[in-house]
């Protein structure tokens, strides 16, 4: 190997490290300007309509199908929850507050048992205008639900604009949900 090729070869590690460092710098910059969130869970439903499903009602309420979500009169939320999930209990007051503010929330109870669900709703209140039961969890798989609680924002055209995995908090509502509501209503 000629000496300059040898020199070039020995410079490769430096070049790789420099490229990596530059990339990390860009990522850090984007994290600071909130362009990139490494903890975000991507949803393939964003920008699409929910996949076909038809679920029967639960807790004595009317169920719904994907066709019912095709053109809601105003933007709405679909909230996945379960009576056995602890964060869902923590989230309940926030959902009640949102429902009281006039936002339409439909619920889907994920792999839940009718009796436990009824108990959950008496204890934590019922913010839902419609409530469906996904007893075997297949609809959740089609939606790409990561875990409960999970909330989807659907605009007037019936398209999913936002998904949040985890319990809704004041901060999430203020920084993410309220801007969406302002944009799409």
């Amino acid at each position: 190997m000629s000496p300059w090729r040898r020199r070039l070869l020995f410079g490769i590690p430096l070049a790789l490290a420099a490229a990596g460092g530059e990339a990390f710098y860009v990522i850090l910059r984007r994290m600071q300007s909130n362009d990139y969130d490494p903890h975000a869970l991507p949803s393939q439903l964003i920008g699409k309509r929910p996949p076909a499903f038809s679920l029967s009602g639960a807790g004595g309420m009317q169920g719904f199908a994907n066709t019912d979500l095709a053109a809601p009169p105003k933007p709405m939320l679909v909230n996945w929850f379960a009576s056995w999930c602890v964060p869902c209990r923590e989230e309940a007051p926030m959902l009640a507050k949102l429902a009281a503010s006039g936002l339409t929330i439909w619920g889907i109870a994920y792999e839940d048992d009718a009796q436990a669900l009824a108990q959950f709703l008496t204890q934590n209140g019922n913010p839902y205008q419609r409530l469906a039961a996904d007893a075997d969890g297949t609809t959740a798989i089609n939606w790409g639900v990561y875990g409960v609680p999970e909330t989807y924002f659907i605009d007037k055209a019936g398209i999913v604009r936002w998904r949040y995995a985890g319990a809704l908090t004041d901060e999430v509502v203020a920084t993410q949900l309220n801007p969406l509501l302002a944009k799409y209503s």
Binding site: F10, G11, P13, L14, A17, A18
Partner: peptide
């Protein structure tokens, strides 16, 4: 640290 050492290496 890394860049400096790799530069020295090169």
């Amino acid at each position: 640290t890394i860049g400096g050492s790799l530069l020295l290496f090169a």
